[in-house]
Write a protein that binds this DNA or RNA. Structure first.
Length: 411
DNA sequence: TCTGATGATTCATT
DNA sequence: AATGAATCATCAGA
């Protein structure tokens, strides 16, 4: 309403504007209004101008060709300069209110945040060394492990998907930019075209472009937001370790079980042993630790089942000649002989052998140097794994193992 | 689809 | 820091 009033005000006060807001050419200014001849002349002009305005009003309802033709006649109309100057005057007054509006606004913080994230993820900006950087960092954060990451299929899969997202993002961004610039160019052309009939300053065109860009910005935000979401989903799918769980190879499981059952009295591999196992199984140290952690607890929970497994591995080992040697195990010098595989089923415990040292049946540790008062490994002070001394390592240990009965609590 | 197996994670304890 | 215990999430076979 204010705008309208502002628009109308100068017009209504303008001496050259007649009753219906019809603009009267300025050269009638100062003429005698009572002059009949002049009056009729004025009426003709009024009619002309109202016709022009009517044409302007109707121009939107017409086809392009029609509009072009009309525009042409309009531009060539003898009254056009007069109308233009009036519009200029109106504009001069109204534009003041426009000037007060803020010129350039600060960059959208949301957009900045999204941009930063996309750059960090290697989606926007220069491609990170194959996108591996983001994957590695995220994986390290997700696993919380010792930093030894699996350079496996998952990683290349992640990279492939990430670059796919990157590609789609850039395609969409290109489309968006094209659409934006096309629309902007169209509007600018339109305004330039219109500026022949009404006064439009370059500043106004600039402002209009700004408005268009602001509108398009919301589309851009949407695009970037959905790209970020896609990256997040990809991350959670690929980098959440729980999701990418894959069973270890049969061979790896066998190696681990072999070690476990041949060290049943002390199934706590040292760092070196873990390294060795990790290398042999093609998995990480932390995976080794996890496996042993799970194995110990599950072994304890289900002795019955583990028994069979233990016997199986014991038999296997006996056939193959002792897997423990493969891990640098030193044969016990304290009379722990390798016995032949026992018959299937529980093996009766030997008398008074249960409280042997933690390493009693485990030649992996350097037992020979420890003697009878051997101290358990610091980290295994609470553990409940022990084995009757004299038992051949890895043989029928599970059947003898009764955590509730035979466990030793150190400290 | 259900269920057991299994690798990983979290938290409390030592 | 290492470990046990509980739990989660996924896989694989019935």
């Amino acid at each position: 309403m204010d705008d309208q009033q502002t628009m109308m005000h100068p017009v209504s006060q303008h001496p050259t504007v007649g009753m219906g807001g019809h603009v009267v050419p300025q050269h009638t200014y100062g003429m005698d209004p009572t002059n009949q001849q002049h009056t009729s002349d004025q009426e003709v002009r009024k009619h002309d101008i109202s016709e022009i305005l009517q044409q302007i009003m109707n121009i939107t309802d017409q086809s392009l060709d029609e509009a072009q033709a009309r525009k042409h006649t309009l531009n060539c109309h003898r009254m056009k300069p007069a109308l233009f100057s009036v519009l200029c005057e109106i504009k001069e007054k109204t534009v003041l209110s426009l000037r007060s509006t803020q010129e350039d606004e600060p960059p959208d913080p949301q957009l900045m945040r999204l941009d930063n994230m996309l750059i960090a993820e290697g989606i926007a900006g220069p491609e990170k060394g194959g996108g591996a950087g983001a994957a590695t960092n995220a994986s390290a954060a997700a696993s919380g492990g010792p930093g030894q990451l699996e350079q496996t299929i998952e990683h290349s899969d992640y990279r492939a998907k990430l670059s796919q997202i990157r590609q789609i993002y850039h395609q969409e961004l290109e489309k968006y930019e094209q659409a934006c610039s096309e629309f902007t160019a169209h509007v600018m052309n339109l305004l330039r075209e219109q500026s022949r009939n009404r006064p439009i300053t370059s500043k106004e065109i600039e402002r209009m472009v700004q408005i268009i860009h602001r509108k398009f910005n919301s589309i851009q935000v949407q695009l970037k937001q959905s790209t970020c979401e896609a990256v997040m989903i990809l991350r959670s799918r690929f980098l959440d370790a729980r999701r990418k769980r894959r069973n270890f190879s049969k061979q790896a499981t066998e190696i681990l079980n072999e070690y476990f059952y041949s060290h049943l009295s002390n199934p706590y591999p040292s760092e070196e042993a873990k390294e060795e196992l990790a290398r042999k199984c093609g998995i990480t140290m932390s995976q080794i630790s996890n496996w042993f952690g799970n194995k110990r607890i599950r072994y304890k929970k289900n002795i019955g089942k583990a028994q069979e497994e233990a016997n199986m591995y014991a038999a296997k080992k006996a056939v193959s000649g002792g897997g423990a040697a493969a891990y640098g195990m030193v044969p016990s010098s304290q009379g722990q002989m390798i016995s032949p595989p026992p018959p299937p089923g529980p093996v009766p415990p030997s008398d008074g052998m249960y409280n042997m040292s933690m390493n009693g049946g485990d030649s992996y540790q350097s037992v020979s140097s420890m003697g009878a008062n051997v101290q358990p490994q610091a980290h295994s002070q609470r553990h409940v794994f022990n084995q009757p001394a004299g038992m051949s390592e890895g043989l029928a240990t599970a059947s003898l193992y009764e955590p509730g009965v035979h466990q030793i609590q150190y400290g």
